[in-house]
Design a protein around this nucleic acid. Sequence first.
DNA 1: TCAATTTGACCTAC
DNA 2: GTAGGTCAAATTGA
Length: 195
Amino acid sequence: MRDMEASVMLEGSSSPPPDWKLTVEALIRGARDSASLLSCQLQDHASGSPSRVLAEGIIHSISRALLVLDDCEKSAVPTTTNPSPAASDDRQNEVSSGKRKITCGRRVYRRRSLPYSCTTITAKTTKDAYSWRKYGQKRIYNATFPRCYYRCTHKPDRGCQATRQVQQSEEDPAMFVSTRADPTRTKLLLQSLTT
DNA sequence: TCAATTTGACCTAC
DNA sequence: GTAGGTCAAATTGA
């Protein structure tokens, strides 16, 4: 698996085919369905059992493979996401309006489609190397459960850009769909896969 | 007192 | 125009 991921990434240094995006989306759908199925199967096995360890490994590998594919796509179409410093200055112009302050001028946000994202499905919100801090929650259209947004606690002091989205599964409320994105650490992971 | 969470507003991608 | 991601004031809890 490791070798496959590495080779996929190396090939991704060239321009992707026109239907690359459709291919990746199809893979993502298939992988998510597979992960959901495996997650359901996991419920019947005790934690640490060989079957469960194997299935968790498969889910992890799928997530990593998708991560590499996504990165190949991104590398083919370079983007700049540097927020304008001037934008933050605009936020200084605040006026008071009732309960909360309303900002004059435009805020600038880094947008959508989590770069270098990695989706996993777990029986509960798992602990990892990060310390997450919740910064938002939204009701999602056609979704029963709201989506929660987390970012790394160390963003202000260490500049950690990791973010995480967690949403309860529609099919099985006991499961949580977790999407993590960390531009800096993902690059390091990809480098390690090639060595 | 301070850090974490909540929640409505703001903003942008689609 | 709408859905969804982010901001930041208010609130809560240790």
